[in-house]
């Protein structure tokens, strides 16, 4: 079976294809990964198998189950997936908050997730509000040892930041990008300001300009129902989608001459540099050297 995507960097990754909670045992599911049709199935022993749908021999693809999702690779994936220890903390609620199809590249989707500057405009009244538009200085590093992009000491004004207050205030954020298409956001919990909620986005590249974004939350919260959490995430993503689909070009420019960064985009700049260093070609406009 011929796989049309030829970029080893993306082929050798683990890619999320479904959250576990929506699957029925022993039923074959179909999806698209890097333009190839694939099928997968979960059995009652919680084992997953996957293969290229059009492959008569049904050669098995590498699979794994991690963090509530099924992951598949079309190449030779690394032994381990990135770390996400909060997922297994006993007092947390893990909710898959939905999968969203977007006509844009994976890189643009991840970058939008890292971006605070759009809160007052795109998520007005929820994650931000005019005129509180300042993105204060924060720190970014590309951690060699963990091979991830890390943005810390991020702060952004949020209206109604805490459960029992109508006042807006600065909320603290930490962003991790431990995988070229996956990002995690750590944010002060509205119920316990000493702990952090985690919001995740795992992007499945169906093609270079077409993705499914799998989202989820890992919360310290005994109040909200899974349904409420899902609704919230639907609203947020519903606001981002039309913006993402109106970005031109759709592929992420690693070539610096296409767009104009500002200091607030430090994390995006680091993310783009990190992708360049890895030599990624798929879904990006490589930098002209």
């Amino acid at each position: 079976m011929e796989i049309s995507c030829k970029d080893p960097v993306i082929l050798n990754q683990w890619h999320p294809v479904s959250s576990l909670d929506v699957l029925t045992m022993d039923t074959v599911e179909n999806t698209i990964l890097l333009e190839s049709k694939i099928s997968f199935q979960l059995n009652s022993k919680e084992e997953v198998t996957a293969w290229l749908s059009l492959d008569d021999e049904k050669t098995l693809l590498p699979t794994r189950i991690s963090y509530g999702f099924i992951w598949v690779s079309l190449g030779n994936p690394p032994k381990d997936l990135f770390l996400f220890p909060e997922f297994s903390e006993s007092d947390r609620q893990n909710v898959a908050t939905g999968v969203f199809g977007v006509n844009v590249s994976a890189g643009r989707t991840v970058e939008n997730f890292l971006d605070m500057g759009h809160f007052p405009y795109v998520h007005s009244g929820i994650l931000g509000e005019e005129p509180h538009t300042e993105v204060k200085e924060y720190d970014v590093e590309i951690s060699e040892e963990r091979d991830e992009v890390l943005a810390t000491s991020c702060k952004f004004y949020q209206p109604q930041a805490a459960v029992n207050s109508n006042e807006g205030m600065d909320v603290d954020y930490i962003y991790r990008v431990p995988h070229i298409n996956c990002a995690l956001l750590y944010k002060t919990s509205p119920v316990d300001d000493a702990r952090l909620d985690v919001i995740i986005i795992f992007v499945q590249p169906m093609g270079e300009e077409w993705v499914r974004a799998h989202t989820g939350m890992c919360l310290i919260d005994d109040e909200s129902t899974a349904e409420q959490i899902r609704q919230f995430q639907q609203t947020i993503f519903g606001q981002d989608k039309p913006i993402l689909e109106n970005q031109y070009p759709k592929q992420l420019p690693l070539d610096s001459r296409i767009e104009t960064p500002i200091r607030a985009d430090k994390s995006a700049i680091a993310y783009r540099r990190w992708l360049s260093q890895k030599g990624l070609q798929y879904g990006v406009i490589p930098s002209a050297i």
């Binding site: 007052p120 405009y121 200091r263």
Partner: peptide
Amino acid sequence: QYHGWRYANRTAGCTYIPAH
């Protein structure tokens, strides 16, 4: 729409970047 940058009539010069 995305980050509220403002561009002036005629010149198309950016007059305000709300993040800074």
